[in-house]
Design a protein around this nucleic acid. Structure first.
Lengths: 237, 237
DNA sequence: GAGTGGTCTAGACCACAAT
DNA sequence: TTGTGGTCTAGACCACTCC
């Protein structure tokens, strides 16, 4: 206890903040080496383990890059890449302080077309479940969720009440999520979806396609259709 | 040294994998407590610090949630949220094994309009730099990059050669990136952009808007326009 | 061989939760 | 008061890079 009234900021955090500040101010530039664990430990009067933890966490955050035997370097700002978080529609609407509700349009058992069978890695003609749900923000339709589900993963899918629980929430609950593939594109909606979304003629949709895996199989393939004039994906880092 | 021929997998990783496997198999379910650091340490024959590191990293990854004084619990699968990485166009094209090149269409000094001044948090009429660059994938135009830049952050912007270096790459180099806001939307392109992208009439664009901060100021505001029929954002987790 | 990061130990004290 | 996580130490051995 050397310092009195320590404001309960752990030493490893102080070191992290110090290093990030030096980088942010441009004192240590991209690709340059930063001080060793040893010397940071001395400078801050802590053990090497503590300095090590600080720098390791910065490496996890890709702020620096470590090369064993060589040193620690300020990472290339490959932040050419922007990280985006796509939330589910109910949470997103709630976060805006608006009301969300959803209406089930269709819930059926189908046999897989060629294209669907390929995406699910099953045989053409095998059974799939299919649902169409419309999501509303303050009573205005904002998303049509067109979803196919693998019966081997969620055999009770057709028996759910999708006005009280979204398909997404149900699937999360019954199937541990092991992987996701997605794409975002723009295009014209099927006529039926355009009507459900109260869209103007010729207006394009912003579409999020999402395919989830669970227990080694494709669990679900979904397309979320949004009217381009009333919806965008957004976020910050 | 109890085990001979240790395959160089550190103990903390073994513990992480064990815990993740139990969760993945549903042995430990959402919200349930997992064993304490102490008991994991005993079970794996390691010190508490090692078990602690394993569980702390899982907490960082949001696989578990820790409550000091209480215990460690399997996290709610709020993976309703999908994390997406948007790469810059040159890297993305290179990753597909295709050729990228870009052509500078315009490079000028402008005075900020009302709307731009608001986004840059400067005064209307202040100087901004403006560039329009077209990016090609295998000689096919795939993106129009319409960018405004804050002269206080990148005073030499107008003197760069943007056929050999993208605006993005230049800005990354001169201005440490402190924050990003983005949005993705769909809409009709300005007539000039439609021509530059060789688009069919009526075809919408997929647009990525991106605003970056550096040194406490807005550094750059950019809109990346892509023909919807030939471009989508995609990725996986 | 010297320097660096990667991992680990066997303790310790603390803050906080549950009781 | 007991049990939990949060942090920290002062060493240690190892793998790797660089000279």
């Amino acid at each position: 206890m050397t310092d009195s009234a320590s404001p309960a900021v752990p030493a490893y955090r102080l070191i992290k903040e110090h290093v990030m500040a030096q980088i942010q101010r441009g004192v240590w530039r991209e690709g340059e080496a930063i001080p060793t664990e040893e010397s940071l430990a001395r400078e801050f009067g802590v053990s090497r383990m503590t300095a090590s933890r600080a720098i390791r966490e910065l490496a996890d955050q890709q702020v620096v890059e470590r090369i064993q035997g060589s040193g620690t370097y300020v990472a290339q700002q490959k932040y050419q890449a922007t990280l985006v978080e796509l939330r589910n529609i109910a949470d997103e609407i709630a976060a805006r302080g608006h009301r969300h509700h959803s209406e089930l349009q269709l819930l059926e058992r189908v046999s897989a077309s060629e294209a669907l069978a390929r995406r699910f890695r099953i045989s053409s003609g095998d059974v799939l479940f299919h649902s169409i749900v419309v999501h509303f923000e303050n009573d205005e339709p904002i998303q049509v969720e067109d979803r196919y589900v693998n019966p081997r993963i969620a055999p009770e899918y057709l028996a759910q009440d999708f006005s009280t629980q979204t398909p997404n929430a149900y699937l999360m609950r019954v199937a541990p999520l092991a992987g996701v593939e997605f794409s975002i594109e723009a295009g014209p909606p099927p006529e039926r979806f355009a009507e459900l979304l109260h869209m103007k003629p010729q207006e394009p949709c912003l579409v999020l396609n999402r395919q989830t895996q669970s227990m080694g199989q494709v669990a679900s393939v979904a397309a979320m259709w949004h009217p381009a004039s009333r919806y965008r994906f957004s976020g910050r880092i």
